Simulated assay, not measured.
Amino acid sequence: MIHEPWRGDAAENEGESMSQEVRGVISRRKGAPVEVTTVVVPDPGPGEAVVRVQSCGVCHTDLHYREGGISDDYPFLLGHEAAGIVEQVGEGVTGVAPGDFVVLNWRAVCGDCRACRRGRPWYCFNTHNAARKMTLTDGTELTPALGIGAFAEKTLVHAGQCTKVDPAARPAAVGLLGCGVMAGLGAAMNTGGVVRGDSVAVIGCGGVGDAAVAGAVLAGATTIVAVDRDPRKLDWARRFGATHTVDASAEDPVEAIRAATGGFGADVVIDAVGRPETWKQAFYARDLAGTVVLVGVPTPEMTVDLPLLDVFGRGGALKSSWYGDCLPSRDFPALTELYLQGRLDLDAFVTEEIGLDQVEDAFGRMHAGDVLRSVVVL
């Protein structure tokens, strides 16, 4: 579907200041059900943009915010895997304009930190967010999830968080590049450096893990082993291109991965769970000089105990993947093009489309493993 540019009304086109009231999903306190309420979105300041949200995926990170696992800066405006149309831009914005179809990202690179200056902007240590605050109608400032806050009809972000992509793409599908799907694709293609002919194992086959499977396929891996305890998730992994599946509740994943790779172990093993036991499985399931990629997010109390000689003796690389080590300006348009060519099935990640008032129920389905992604469509 082609998305027509948004033109705005005369007052906005002339730059008249007029904050807007929209519906949005907030978390007021730890563990409490989320609620739909009125959010005040100010005009964009210098370097900022207001985006009319068309879709936003329900991600585990939003649930972590609700549960206090990220910070205690309540109330939170949840949602961050989003696509939409730029409505307004602030002073000095040249990269996007009203009417542009964009996918939002939470790592808007600064261009000036030590990582950016060394030509590694995907590691940017000083990423941008909007300086102006969205609020409740009583003036209470909201903390937007990952600097985005897109479970709302409109949101305010830094203009660098807006990445233009082909407007022919379906918002509910390409919006998922904003977080989980990009994390998995990038774990294989960027962090893991999978190349043609490699063997890859993916432990944990939810949305991120299945995206890692899809990324391994795109990179040309010939053997892709998917590991999970849930038969439904193994079925999903096969759909995305896994050549072998392992039920971790019935067999030893390390031995099964070795058996599928000629007894050697995989060239790249991706832990999309983020627990000590799955990371150790990934460590021992790789070939000599192989690569382990941690993309699942651990909790603060988790630790790993390994013989240091095993670390030395196996060689290779132990890596963590931040957002799939993506560069949104490079990766989002390219992956959107692969989607439009039929080479990357982003639609397969969308289990259901829901409204803003169904986010709390979607958290339950996500926690139970019943969906790959619920996507709020506005």
Score class of each variant (00 low, 15 high):
Gly175His: 10
Cys110Ser: 04
Ala183Pro: 00
Ile26His: 04
Ala211Cys: 01
Pro121Trp: 12
Gly206Pro: 04
Gly263Lys: 11
Glu4Met: 06
Pro333Arg: 13
Glu337Thr: 15
Thr38Met: 00
Thr222Tyr: 00
Ile26Ser: 01
Glu16Phe: 02
Asp361Arg: 15
Pro253His: 13
Gly316Val: 03
Gln20His: 07
Val58Thr: 05
Gly186Leu: 08
Gly220Arg: 13
Phe76Asp: 00
Asp62Ser: 14
Ala282Trp: 05
Asp361Phe: 01
Ala260Ile: 05
Asn126Val: 02
Asp166Pro: 09
Ser374Asn: 15
Ala187Gly: 07
Ala212Cys: 03
Ala211Asp: 04
Ala97Met: 04
Arg120Ser: 09
Asn129Ala: 14
Leu294Gln: 14
Asp310Glu: 11
Leu346Gly: 04
Val96Met: 02
Asp73Ile: 07
Asp112Ser: 15
Met1Phe: 10
Pro171Ile: 07
Ala259Asn: 13
Gly274Thr: 05
Leu218Ser: 11
Ala188His: 02
Gly69Lys: 14
Pro307Ile: 05
Arg29His: 08
Glu352Phe: 05
Val376Ser: 05
Lys233Ser: 05
Pro300Arg: 11
Asp9Pro: 02
Gly57Ala: 07
Ile203His: 02
Thr37Ser: 07
His64Asn: 08
Leu63Tyr: 15
Pro44Met: 08
Pro98Ala: 04
Cys113Thr: 13
Val39Ile: 15
His80Lys: 11
His244Gln: 06
Leu294Tyr: 00
Leu327Gln: 08
Asp112Gln: 15
Ile203Trp: 06
Gly296Phe: 07
Ser27Lys: 12
Asp287Pro: 00
Thr163Ser: 13
Asp370Met: 14
Thr278Asn: 09
Val227Pro: 03
Ala152Asp: 10
Ala188Met: 03
Val22Arg: 15
Ala211Tyr: 01
Gln281Gly: 00
Thr163Tyr: 12
Val377Phe: 04
Val200Thr: 00
Arg118Lys: 15
Asp305Gln: 11
Pro98Ile: 06
Gly193Ala: 06
Ala10His: 12
Ala211Val: 03
Ala334Ser: 14
Gly313Thr: 01
Gly139Ile: 02
Asp252Gln: 12
Ser27Cys: 14
Arg170Phe: 00
Leu318Arg: 03
Gly209Ile: 12
Glu255Trp: 08
Ser329His: 08
Gln358Ser: 13
Val165Thr: 04
Val50Cys: 06
Gly47Leu: 09
Cys162Thr: 12
Gly206Asp: 04
Cys113Val: 11
Ile70Lys: 13
Asp9Phe: 02
Glu141Met: 05
Met182Ile: 11
Asp305Gly: 00
Cys205Gln: 13
Asp305Val: 10
Leu335Met: 09
Gly57His: 10
Gly197Arg: 10
Gly241Ala: 08
Met366Val: 02
Ala266Thr: 05
Ala317Asn: 01
Thr261Trp: 06
Pro328Arg: 10
